[in-house]
Amino acid sequence: MQTQNLKHYLVKFQSVIALLIMCIVLSFLSDRFLTGENAWNVMRQISVNVIISVGMTLVILTGGIDLSVGSVLAFAGAVTAGMLKFGAEFTDWDIYLGFTLLGALIGGILSGTFLGWFNGITITRFKVPPFVATLAMLTIARGLTMLWTGGFPITGLGDNMAFIGTGWFLGIPMPVWISAVIVLAAVVLTNKTKLGRHIYAIGGNETAAKLSGIKIKKVKLIVYSIAGALAGVGGIIVTSRLDSAQPNAGFGFELDSIAAVVIGGTSLSGGKGTIMGTVQGALIIGILNNGLVLLNVSPFWQQVIKGFVILLAVVIEKFNSKED
């Protein structure tokens, strides 16, 4: 019984254990790793991935996938930057609308939400498989970003905007605050609310969920919209940190995001997984990135190693679920 219990805990906290081991090993290998400065550094770096991965987790829990988050992030960032810097000018009517920071932020998040909602519509209304629908959005949103920015970065956004991505509040970096609030909200959503339960039910068995009176289309629409909105938040943070909206921002972010979700133990077929798992997944990727940089591993090798870590995580997961 004792060993059984021990094994149970080993399985349950495997990600935490993996994280601890990584931290211990890295602190021996590099004296710069285990410093307060580096810790905040890692946290700040992963915060954007955490935020978009929360949305990705919800999408994957319903049995879907969202490949468009990186492009949507870029678009939302560009919209925010554009609104903040240039406002909206309608020369025909001689109207000029300027936006406050808050207005620009809302605009950015809404544009992300809209693109996410559009994903939801194509998936639920026109029955396009999520993979294809969001793959299409990946290029649509990237194209829209190019159109919006004309292919050039929008820079010089002011100190207030910069505070969101680089500022500190109560001794903690702003992006970490934002991601923490979003994670907390998502944990409550998945564990305590009807919507959360519906998300798990749809991923677990869509037919049974439908026959139980769950509004499949509505739930999916909400989930893809949330994913879009969170990509928007991510876009704002990225833009703020660089003090510029880059047309190619967020390139490949969907892959890191899916990796975090998968390492966190969420099943790609839906119905099984947790937000906290995803956070741990994002931490694992973040610390790995950070450690490899500190150890001066070449960027080429970093990618190879990251790929193997993803494989390893999934293999361990499969092995464990078989043991059950």
């Binding site: 339960r197 798990y200 039910a201 677990g204 068995n205 037919t207 049974a208 026959l211 119905g271 099984k272």
Partner: peptide
């Protein structure tokens, strides 16, 4: 196929 979410518990 139609009645249950197999990986959910009895309560849910």
């Amino acid at each position: 196929l139609q009645g249950l979410i197999m990986n959910m518990n009895v309560e849910k």
